[in-house]
C-alpha cells in the first residue's frame, strides 16, 4: 500500500489504463502541459506524449463531441470538463447524444468514454464553480454516474469507468483533492455500482456520497461517543448503477435512514433513494427518511456563507438527534 492524495490518484488511474490500452486517449483544457488546473493530470503528457494527451481550446462542445466520435470509432477517450458547472455548456452531449445514441440506433454503437469533472463546494468560488450536479446526471437514462470519496476509489473506480463499455460521468470532488489515503499497489480496479458499508451500526443508517462521506463518518463517531447512537455509514460511490441491495439491507436492519447530499434539495439523489426505501421497506422503517441536503439555493461565495449551507458534520449530528428525539416511542432503545 502506498499513500496517495486524491489528486494524484486521478493521474495514477489514468496512467494505469493508458499504459495497458493504446485505445485510451485523453483530452481537455489545460490537461497536458499545465498538468490540469487542479494538478490532477501532472506527468501524463510527459509519459504518454501529445498524441494521446491532447490540450484543447476552451470548447466544451468540441471536447465532448470529439470524445463521442472517437468512442464510436474504436477509441476509449477520457474527456475532462474542468468544472462540473461547465457541463451546462455541453449538456447536449451528455443528455442527448452520448447517453442516447446506442439506444436510438438499436445497439449499433457502444460508447466507451469517461467524462471527468471537478464537482462540489468548499473552494469559495461562488455559484458557477461550486455546484454539486450529480443529480442532473442521474436523471438521464443511458449514462453511468460515479463519485468517489477516497484516493483508492478514485484510482479503482476511474480504472473501472475507463474499462466500462458504457459512458460514465465521473465526479471528482474538488475539496477532497488534497485528501490522502492508502491505495493498493499494482493494478487496482473496483467494480462500478457497488456501495461500500464503511462502518456498521445498529440504530441508524447514514448514506453519503463524495465529500459528504468523511462528514458522515465524523458525525457517526460523535453520535456514538456523545449520544450512544450506533450508525451504519454507506458510501454510495455510484448513483447509476445504484446499489439498492446494500442500501435496503442496512435500512431494514436499522429502521432509520438519513441521506447526506451536497446537491440542492429538489430532486437530489436522496429523493430517489427515499422513494425506493419507502416503496420497498416501508414496514421496516421506524421513522420517515430524513434528507440532509444543501438548501435549494445557489452556492454563495463567502466562506461563512458557503460553510453554512453545505451539510456539515455538526448539522448531520443535529438532524439525527432531532429526528430520533422527535419520535422516542419508535426508538429502538435510543
Amino acid at each position: 500500500m502506498a499513500e496517495l492524495s486524491y489528486r494524484d490518484a486521478v493521474a495514477a488511474g489514468i496512467a494505469q489504463e493508458m499504459a495497458r490500452d493504446e485505445r485510451v486517449v485523453f483530452l481537455g483544457e489545460d490537461i497536458g502541459a499545465a498538468g490540469g488546473v487542479f494538478k490532477t493530470t501532472v506527468g501524463l503528457l510527459d509519459r504518454f506524449g501529445p498524441r494521446r494527451v491532447r490540450d484543447t481550446p476552451i470548447s466544451e462542445l468540441a471536447i465532448l463531441g470529439a470524445a463521442m466520435g472517437a468512442a464510436m470509432t474504436g477509441l476509449r477517450p477520457i474527456a475532462e470538463i474542468m468544472f462540473s458547472d461547465f457541463l451546462a455548456c455541453c449538456w447536449d452531449y451528455v443528455a442527448n447524444e452520448i447517453s442516447k445514441t446506442r439506444y436510438m440506433t438499436n445497439g449499433q454503437f457502444t460508447m466507451p468514454l469517461v467524462i471527468r469533472t471537478a464537482n462540489g463546494a468548499g473552494s469559495r468560488f461562488g455559484a458557477q464553480h461550486s455546484q454539486s450536479v450529480e443529480n442532473w446526471a442521474m436523471a438521464i437514462p443511458g449514462i453511468k454516474v460515479v463519485a468517489p470519496a477516497t484516493p483508492a476509489d478514485v484510482k479503482g473506480l476511474l480504472a473501472a469507468a475507463i474499462r466500462d463499455p458504457d459512458p460514465v460521468l465521473f465526479f471528482e470532488h474538488k475539496s477532497l483533492y488534497s485528501l490522502k489515503g492508502e491505495v493498493p499497489d499494482g493494478e487496482h480496479v473496483e467494480a462500478l455500482g457497488r456501495a461500500k458499508v464503511l462502518r456498521r451500526g445498529d440504530d441508524i443508517t447514514i448514506v453519503a456520497l463524495a465529500a459528504m462521506v468523511p462528514r458522515a463518518l465524523q458525525a457517526a463517531d460523535i453520535l456514538q461517543a456523545q449520544h450512544g447512537i450506533s450508525a451504519t455509514v454507506i458510501d454510495l460511490r455510484s448513483l447509476v448503477p445504484l446499489d439498492t441491495q446494500t442500501l435496503l439491507a442496512e435500512v431494514t436492519r436499522t429502521g432509520r435512514l438519513f441521506t447526506v447530499e451536497e446537491n440542492p434539495r429538489l430532486c437530489g439523489w436522496g429523493a430517489e433513494i427515499s422513494s425506493i426505501v419507502t416503496e420497498e421497506c416501508f414496514f421496516d422503517l421506524d421513522q420517515p427518511v430524513v434528507r440532509i441536503s444543501t438548501p435549494h439555493i445557489p452556492i454563495p461565495a463567502a466562506d461563512a456563507l458557503e460553510d453554512a449551507v453545505i451539510p456539515s458534520t455538526a448539522r448531520i449530528v443535529t438532524e439525527v438527534l432531532r429526528a430520533v428525539d422527535f419520535r422516542p416511542g419508535a426508538a429502538r432503545g435510543i
Binding site: L61, L64, A66, G69, G74, L75, E97, T101, F109
Partner: peptide
Amino acid sequence: VKHGVMGSYAIVGGHLPIAVGAAWSAQYR
C-alpha cells in the same frame, strides 16, 4: 454503421464535433 452512416442528428450542429472525433480517431489509428 455497416454502410458508414454514423448517424443522423436532430440537434442542430450536434454532429459536427462528433464528426471531428471520428476524424481524430481515424488520424490516431
